[in-house]
Simulated scan of single mutants.
Amino acid sequence: MSQGQKFFDDLGRLMNDAASVADGARREAETAIRGQMERVVNDLNLVKREDYDALRELVSIQGEEIEALRRELEAFKRRKKTT
């Protein structure tokens, strides 16, 4: 193996090692940031999307029920006046 070829082989290995170290550092940083963001979100006491959607559906149904009861009450009042 010639000196030039050995140099480039060593340089290639060094670059691969550097890329592996950089990738490991990136993953470690992502994990740390993700953990910090989860703590922040938990401290804010935010509502989960599923819970919000379920409550929204419940409120919608109750709104419809209230409107139906109002119509029934008005009809009852009209019948009461005519009697």
Rank of each mutant, 00 (worst) to 15 (best):
M1L: 01
M1P: 01
S2H: 15
S2R: 09
G4Y: 11
Q5M: 14
Q5E: 14
F7I: 14
F8K: 15
F8S: 15
D10G: 10
D10Q: 10
L11W: 15
G12E: 00
G12Y: 08
G12R: 13
G12Q: 08
R13A: 06
L14H: 13
L14A: 15
M15C: 10
M15A: 15
N16L: 03
D17M: 00
A18M: 15
A18F: 13
A18I: 13
A19S: 12
A19W: 03
A19D: 13
A19M: 10
S20Q: 15
A22T: 02
D23Y: 04
D23F: 01
D23P: 01
G24R: 06
G24N: 08
G24E: 04
A25E: 01
A25P: 01
R26P: 00
R27I: 02
E28D: 05
E28I: 06
A29K: 06
A29I: 02
A29R: 04
E30T: 00
E30V: 00
E30L: 00
T31F: 12
I33W: 07
I33H: 05
R34F: 11
R34L: 11
G35A: 09
G35D: 14
Q36S: 13
M37H: 05
E38N: 06
R39L: 11
R39G: 08
V40G: 00
V41K: 07
N42H: 09
D43Q: 11
L44W: 07
N45H: 08
N45W: 05
N45A: 06
L46V: 02
V47P: 02
V47S: 01
K48V: 10
K48D: 11
R49Y: 09
R49V: 07
R49S: 05
R49I: 08
E50P: 11
E50W: 11
E50H: 14
E50F: 11
D51P: 05
A54P: 09
L55S: 07
L55M: 04
L55H: 09
L55Q: 14
R56F: 06
R56T: 02
E57T: 07
E57S: 03
L58G: 03
V59E: 05
V59I: 15
S60C: 02
I61T: 05
E65R: 11
E65G: 00
E67M: 05
E67W: 07
E67Y: 06
E67V: 01
E67G: 03
A68V: 08
R70P: 00
R71K: 08
R71D: 09
E72M: 06
L73Y: 13
L73D: 02
L73W: 11
E74I: 10
A75F: 10
A75L: 11
K77Q: 11
R78V: 12
R79D: 11
R79L: 13
R79T: 06
R79P: 03
K80C: 08
K80Q: 08
K80V: 10
K81L: 10
K81F: 12
K81G: 12
T82G: 02
T82I: 12
T83D: 07
